[in-house]
Design a protein around this nucleic acid. Structure first.
Lengths: 346, 346
DNA sequence: CTGAAAGCGCTAACAG
DNA sequence: CTGTTAGCGCTTTCAG
């Protein structure tokens, strides 16, 4: 009857002893595995409750699963990503899996470090949101751990993907602006120079969608793209360039809402009124866009659904690593608000 | 000379064999531990490079450290928290530690789940940002794993704290508004009813700072607090209540910038102009506040410094779990922008 | 259906 | 300074 040593954790052995069964049985109950009688289960469950036992995930990982899912986010400042995380959590909350996130910082080195860290920690699955890493690296990761890639196009035989139809999304914006009467519609993109990634990255596809839509409207001569980054700063600098043009655009299509925030900033500093002097549209329809004083026209890509789909695909793949990969593509919609209006009279 | 089995990880045994040394030696080199000759180190390093070996963190955790630090964030939407994370990462990036984050979702149950998950995964240390859990729970966690609590006041003998002087911060806002000539200054707080937490939570202390400052300016009869939450939605609903008052306030002090976004929304919908009809101030000085069209007066609490301090304290505590706990308190500053101005003439 | 025993990859004692 | 050995807590064969 002596008290347990101050800092020793309750282990499976303690539970087994308390319930008068073997550790194997306890382990089976823990995993809801096949082959335990109801009485055994009840006894074990009681012992677990009595002792306040929780399995040590690190140890479980040595033989089986860690019940941990890693989510790599490119940028924790972009208000779009929380939507995806919410969608993931909605699904995973009901399961035994714990979600752990890490910032990829929009850099190949940082992303490699994060993915390696997740692999080394024995994570059962990973969700990579808008990764910039090479396809080779993504497939390498997916070869080791079940992987879902979010927001990146392209078909892979080893990982599942969930993405938004960025080509269509960009066209929605261009058409909306052209319908309002704009011709000089400029675009601010997140710079992408690697040809191997151009076909896959959402930012590159939005830019391509912009080009195609401009051509479709007979505005090929008005195509005007500034390359910066999907950050507030990127939007600010990009807009400054555009506003300095001799024939400045009457509308700016920012590749992401976070970019639009910087654009608004630059436009306001230039003493221009939105939408009277210039129209602004974003992409992502973050809660920021809906905000009264901002009221930004934006493309909604249903981040929560994206996240939920990613979670489901990941669970399926964890359950069966050999099933064929799936590509889920969701359709965006345009939410027109007060930052877009007909252009000022020439 | 046969190739290694397709999917077996390279282990410390492989490295030891390749370098013709014992696993102990490899382990020591890995940890930069005392007692290895330069030649040994070189040989081992070479073998590690040759084989592309990376230690399996889950296994290391069984005996020693996992080289993982957990960060619990209450709300991944609040743009203030990335600042803290950046500060943490600045320091931890140089070390072997990997930062993994999880959302506490502003709920006691969710927080318990997250802290347990971190403990169960053998994390070497945790940073809890603005936790709402009971002090008992915090001390329980800190008794198991080195812990730094951020943004919560109160002295503990088992965990270190880093916080902002919220009492002063709130006073800065009230004084600023009172100096401009406001008397009917209202405050929107994040509701706190648990008496045990009132003395510790930053939201409660900001509210108290507001009360004290109002009294100090002889405005005790004008004290007007609405209790909601530190979210955009909370700000929106809180402002709607305030604007419906028969004698509506001429200034609203929102307890956080994210709250101010909702306030701006409600004010705009009510057809009021900022700052001509009503002044608005926030707290946190997020990048959103600096934004041109918003230009929100706010209190800067140097999130990056908070994060860096937390990281340093945590590393110190991991190195020496018996050193006395420290309480770092940083001083906020007011950043006056365009959402505050003298009240409209009565 | 249940249990005994081996071992996952690593580190910590302890010898030499 | 280096190596041998014994586990960490759990899951997994494999017998009973």
């Amino acid at each position: 009857m002596e008290p347990p040593a101050q800092h020793r954790r309750v282990t499976i052995v303690d539970v087994a002893r308390h319930a008068q069964v073997s550790t194997t049985t306890v382990s089976k109950v823990l995993r809801n595995a096949y082959g335990t009688s109801p009485q055994m289960r009840a006894k074990v469950r009681q012992a677990i409750a009595d002792l306040g036992y929780r399995p040590y995930a690190a140890a479980r990982g040595m033989r089986g699963q860690t019940y941990t899912i890693g989510v790599m986010l490119p940028d924790i400042r972009n208000p779009f990503f929380p939507e995806i995380v919410d969608g993931l959590t909605d699904i995973l909350w009901e399961t035994d899996y714990q979600v752990l996130m890490a910032p990829g910082r929009n850099g190949e080195k940082a992303e490699a470090r994060v993915t390696e860290a997740m692999i080394d920690r024995g994570m059962d699955g990973v969700v990579l949101v808008a990764p910039i890493s090479s396809r080779t690296h993504l497939e390498h990761v997916a070869g080791i751990v079940p992987t879902v890639v979010v927001g990146r196009h392209g078909h892979s035989a080893v990982y599942d993907t969930v993405s938004d139809d960025d080509l269509t999304g960009a066209a929605l914006v261009v058409d909306h602006l052209a319908d309002l009467g704009h011709r000089r519609i400029a675009h601010i993109e997140h710079s992408e120079t690697d040809p191997r990634r151009i076909a896959e990255m959402p930012n590159a596809i939005r830019a391509e969608g912009y080009r195609q839509a401009m051509r479709a409207r007979g505005l090929e001569d008005e195509i005007d793209i500034v390359s910066t980054t999907y950050t507030q700063q990127g939007g600010y600098l990009g807009a400054q360039q555009l506003l300095a043009r001799p024939d400045r655009p009457t509308a700016i299509f920012a590749g992401a809402d976070i970019v639009a925030t910087g654009v608004l900033q630059a436009v306001s500093e230039a003493g221009l009124a939105v939408p009277d002097d210039i129209s602004i549209a974003g992409y992502d329809n973050t809660s920021f866009a809906a905000l009264g004083p901002i009221s930004l026209t934006s493309v909604d890509q249903a981040g929560r659904h994206i996240g939920a789909n990613a979670a489901k695909l990941l669970l399926e793949r964890i359950a069966d690593r050999t099933r064929p990969t799936a590509q889920v593509k969701l359709s965006p919609t345009l939410v027109a608000r007060r930052t877009t209006a007909p252009p000022p009279p020439a």
